[in-house]
């Protein structure tokens, strides 16, 4: 179930034209943000926004990171 929300987000990035490459899609699907977020942020992992990770820094919004990878 959890994985489905992530898959949905990745498919949205493809529809928006942010994510082009099959290779990048496969990689992003394989690594949901969940395992990289503080406990209190985990439930927001599949929203396309930056999330605070402490010390004034954020975990990038999935669309921003997609811009780098294609």
């Amino acid at each position: 179930m959890e994985q489905d929300k992530w898959t949905e987000l990745i498919n949205q990035l493809i529809r928006q034209g942010v994510l082009h490459s099959k290779k990048v899609k496969t990689a992003m699907l394989a690594v949901p943000r969940t395992n990289f977020l503080p406990e209190d942020m985990k439930s927001y992992y599949a929203s396309d926004t930056p999330l605070p990770i402490g010390h004034g820094q954020t975990c990038s919004a999935p669309h921003s990171f997609s811009l780098f990878l294609g």
Partner: peptide, 11 residues
């Protein structure tokens, strides 16, 4: 940051 970028790049 969180390490999420580098894990994805590793894939």
């Amino acid at each position: 940051g969180s390490g999420w970028h580098s894990a994805t790049i590793a894939e």
